[in-house]
Amino acid sequence: MPVRRGHVAPQNTFLDTIIRKFEGQSRKFIIANARVENCAVIYCNDGFCELCGYSRAEVMQRPCTCDFLHGPRTQRRAAAQIAQALLGAEERKVEIAFYRKDGSCFLCLVDVVPVKNEDGAVIMFILNFEVVMEKDMVGSPAHDTNHRGPPTSWLAPGRAKTFRLKLPALLALTARESSVRSGGAGGAGAPGAVVVDVDLTPAAPSSESLALDEVTAMDNHVAGLGPAEERRALVGPGSPPRSAPGQLPSPRAHSLNPDASGSSCSLARTRSRESCASVRRASSADDIEAMRAGVLPPPPRHASTGAMHPLRSGLLNSTSDSDLVRYRTISKIPQITLNFVDLKGDPFLASPTSDREIIAPKIKERTHNVTEKVTQVLSLGADVLPEYKLQAPRIHRWTILHYSPFKAVWDWLILLLVIYTAVFTPYSAAFLLKETEEGPPATECGYACQPLAVVDLIVDIMFIVDILINFRTTYVNANEEVVSHPGRIAVHYFKGWFLIDMVAAIPFDLLI
């Protein structure tokens, strides 16, 4: 008679799926529990143990900040960024110097990925580790590398530091407007667009060049630039800015003055950032001319202004700041037409079709709590990747769950009947059967004279019903998954307890 339990259901295979997918890609990662103190490590794979030199037993239950890997060259700011990422709910990448158990130093890129439950609360953290440099290539500990984003994938490793954006290309926007319009339909740009040429040739750093990471940081200074100062900065030398009595002219307006920039070969870094931020506020060169004239017309309804409409929906549905990093990277690809469009465009503009998908598509409701890094690593669709929660398995109709209350009560009843059979069957065979043979035949009273025979008949009927119930009862397979398919249940029961239950259900007393 089957006594099969499996009270692990309803099970959740999400954690096993993450481990299996990460292991298949030869990654070095740990999984931490966000619900406990210090976000203790609950799993670390073999790749991480080989990377740091510690065994799994030495890593388990330690804080996922990996303070046991810190050393003299470990930056405090990087460690603080990892700790801050564990307090938030967004994906974050941090470069930090770690030390192995043998004392060797290596520069590592740590990717902190939160995993949320159905309520939107962070319950786990996945920390992925990628070695960037070994100890002989690690720089000085005073050099802070965590304020910069990861290198873009479309640049060669040897040319990542030679990417320079020439400031004269930004200063000569109005001069290039006529050349853009003359391109017409034969050019790649839309009317009114501004073409910015980027020099990728390796050259020595000069005062006129600005690194790509500095251009990325310009967006942080746009908020500090007032509207009046932006307007004066875009007017140009024809209309000098008016300053109040006793007030000095704005240095932001002076930063885009061609006369002032041409007199000296070098520009201050602050002026460069502010000038680029001011130019980015204009949607095209037409807006710059309109600002000089004193009238700013409404933005025209053409394809170039609607190019950012799908980007707005993608940004609203993005799951991490990696989408913004990807957008900034692609927006700086050289030799393309940049349409400086305000994100607050007309909502009635139709979304044009684009061959290049900048932001990841909208994630469906079932995966809105899973970050983009987890979705990318697992390579699963929205119909396959579940949320991290207890999910009731989908069972067929008329199927009994093996952990249901009805099955528990039924098993206790069958257990009592088995005990009765084990006690009274030998007793009936030894004593009652002998008395029946010696006594007179009682054929007239039937079952009324033999109450134990009636009980034995009921017990046999219950055993037959138990066999039928076992054909529709779920079970737990070797992978700790609840199986509810009727065919698989029948095959599993035939290979197991079916023969024993059938022999126990045969009414031998009635056959004798």
Rank of each mutant, 00 (worst) to 15 (best):
P2F: 06
V3D: 14
V3T: 11
R4M: 15
R5L: 15
R5D: 09
G6A: 11
G6Q: 14
H7F: 08
V8Q: 15
Q11C: 14
N12Q: 15
N12D: 10
T13A: 07
T13D: 11
F14D: 12
L15R: 01
D16F: 10
T17V: 14
I19W: 01
I19S: 02
R20T: 13
R20K: 07
F22D: 05
F22T: 07
E23Y: 01
E23R: 01
Q25V: 07
Q25K: 10
K28Y: 06
K28N: 15
F29N: 01
A32E: 01
N33L: 06
N33I: 05
N33M: 06
A34P: 15
V36M: 15
E37L: 09
N38S: 15
N38G: 13
A40R: 11
A40Y: 06
V41T: 08
V41R: 01
D46R: 10
C49E: 05
E50W: 01
G53M: 06
R56L: 01
A57T: 13
V59K: 01
M60F: 08
M60R: 01
P63M: 04
P63A: 13
C64G: 14
F68R: 01
G71W: 01
P72V: 05
R73S: 14
R73L: 09
R77G: 10
R77E: 13
Q81P: 01
Q81W: 05
Q81E: 13
I82Y: 05
A83G: 07
Q84P: 01
Q84A: 13
Q84H: 03
A85D: 01
A85R: 01
L86G: 01
L86R: 01
L86F: 01
G88W: 13
A89K: 13
E90Y: 13
E90M: 09
E91L: 13
E91N: 11
K93P: 06
K93I: 08
K93T: 12
V94W: 01
V94M: 01
E95Q: 13
I96P: 01
I96S: 01
F98R: 01
Y99W: 01
G103C: 12
S104P: 03
L107C: 06
L107I: 15
C108Y: 01
D111A: 06
D111I: 03
V112I: 15
P114Q: 01
P114G: 02
V115L: 13
N117D: 06
E118M: 11
D119S: 08
M124H: 08
F125H: 06
V132I: 14
M133P: 15
E134Y: 06
M137D: 04
V138I: 07
G139C: 10
P141S: 06
T145Q: 11
R148M: 11
R148G: 09
G149K: 12
P150S: 08
P150L: 08
P150M: 07
P151E: 06
T152K: 06
S153F: 04
S153D: 11
W154V: 06
A156T: 15
A156K: 13
P157A: 13
R159Y: 11
R159P: 06
A160Q: 14
K161E: 14
R164W: 06
R164E: 06
L165Y: 14
K166Y: 01
K166W: 07
L167I: 14
L167R: 05
P168M: 01
P168W: 01
P168L: 03
A172Y: 01
L173A: 15
R176Q: 08
S179T: 09
V180M: 07
S182H: 12
S182Q: 14
G183T: 09
G187V: 08
A190N: 05
G192W: 01
A193T: 05
V194N: 03
V195H: 04
D197K: 03
T201D: 07
T201H: 14
P202L: 01
A204Y: 01
P205E: 15
S207Y: 13
E208Q: 09
E208T: 10
A211Y: 09
A211W: 01
D213Q: 06
V215G: 12
A217S: 08
N220M: 07
N220G: 08
G224H: 09
L225W: 15
L225M: 12
P227F: 14
G236N: 03
G236W: 05
P237W: 04
P237R: 08
G238H: 14
S239L: 08
P241Q: 12
R242P: 11
R242F: 14
R242K: 14
S243W: 04
S243F: 05
A244G: 09
L248W: 15
L248M: 07
S250H: 03
S250E: 05
P251Y: 13
A253F: 13
H254C: 07
S255N: 10
P258G: 14
P258M: 13
S261R: 10
S263V: 08
S264F: 06
C265I: 12
S266K: 08
L267C: 13
L267Y: 14
A268S: 08
T270Y: 05
T270R: 14
R271D: 10
R271F: 15
S272G: 05
S272M: 09
R273F: 11
S275I: 14
A277T: 14
S278F: 08
V279T: 07
R280K: 07
R281F: 10
R281T: 15
R281I: 03
R281Q: 04
D287N: 14
D287F: 07
D287V: 09
I288L: 09
E289H: 04
A290P: 12
A290V: 07
M291Y: 05
M291T: 10
V295G: 12
V295F: 14
P298A: 06
P299W: 05
H302D: 11
A303E: 11
T305L: 13
M308Y: 12
M308L: 07
H309A: 12
H309Q: 08
R312D: 14
S313L: 07
L315R: 09
L316A: 11
S318L: 12
S320R: 08
D321R: 14
D323M: 05
D323E: 14
V325R: 12
V325P: 12
T329W: 04
P334H: 04
Q335I: 01
I336E: 07
T337V: 07
F340S: 15
V341S: 13
D342M: 01
L343Y: 07
G345H: 11
D346L: 08
F348E: 07
A350Q: 07
A350Y: 01
S351L: 05
T353D: 13
P361V: 04
P361K: 09
V370I: 12
T375N: 04
Q376A: 11
L378R: 02
S379W: 08
L380A: 03
A382T: 01
L385V: 07
P386A: 05
